[in-house]
Design a protein around this nucleic acid. Structure first.
Lengths: 150, 150
DNA sequence: TTGTGTGCAAAACATTTGCACACAT
DNA sequence: ATGTGTGCAAATGTTTTGCACACAA
């Protein structure tokens, strides 16, 4: 039986071969890591993890592969108020928005059809043709609120 | 009669004196520029404008003053998918969201109470205490759509 | 004098690029 | 041979910082 990971590998291979690029060991290592840890990350975090685990992929290759993965639609860039670019591995998952905790930094994903509808209406009212959209809510998550001394 | 600009100057002076800081000529020049041109900008844009107009404020002072203005609540950082930080002069204006055109880069502001309500509901449902939130919609604006050859 | 502010240049940080070598077709 | 990939180190672009001098309390 074909697992989801298999289909991701196949999709990436297809994307690469369409572009005349090859599925190199380094690209595979990066994809495998993301499949196993699909979530939010930035380039330097990934590089640090690879260094610690002795996974032999250079900084330049990480940046270059991230660009390919974004282009292929496997990663989407998440704009946070940070100096670094954050990415998230979207794979096959549906569109969702983010709640980001100011205290612990955790990122909670949510989907809300009503919210999505409202966004589409607003764009339409303004004559806009949407290509993408993001909703970020910052605050204190339930867990951190529970721990507050005050 | 007290204009809005006067009250902004006063508020900034108050903020500074509360922190034991002074309302220097450079800080005044930056604030005056923003009052007159309240909108979206990044630090390097501002520095370039000041250089062209021969307004004598150094790069370091621009960055340092922006940090103070953010801290004082006069500016808010707008997270775009860019290598530079964007800011917007919020002054007394109500909360609003952004439509950003991929083609011409224009930023349209909008407010939508229903959207805001929905965001609050979603946060509540997830046990989150909101401190701030942003909605960014990217796409093609009405004007650019009109001009498309295709 | 002590605290704070400024400008400059250097440093720091994230990211991109040029180049030489490696590998597969 | 040609095209593509990698790693390294250098370059780039943005933002921050150290330091010496200026100014006001």
């Amino acid at each position: 039986m074909k697992t989801e990971a298999d289909s991701l590998r196949a999709r990436f291979r297809d994307y690469l071969s369409c572009k005349g690029l090859s599925f190199t060991p380094q690209r595979k290592l990066i994809l495998e890591y993301l499949i196993r840890n699909s979530s939010h990350f930035n380039a330097e975090e990934l590089i640090a993890i690879f260094r610690k685990k002795r996974i032999p992929v250079s900084r330049a290759t990480v940046y270059r592969t991230i660009a390919h993965l974004v282009d292929a639609g496997f990663l989407s860039q998440v704009a946070l108020e940070s100096s670094q670019s954050y990415y998230e591995f979207i794979a096959n998952s549906a569109h969702h928005e983010h709640l980001v905790c100011d205290k612990c930094g955790c990122i909670i994903e949510f989907t809300d059809p009503e919210l999505e509808n409202r966004i589409e209406s607003v764009a339409r009212l303004n004559g806009f043709e949407i290509s993408r959209h993001t909703v970020h809510i910052s605050g204190i998550c339930g867990r951190c609120r529970g721990q507050q001394e005050t």
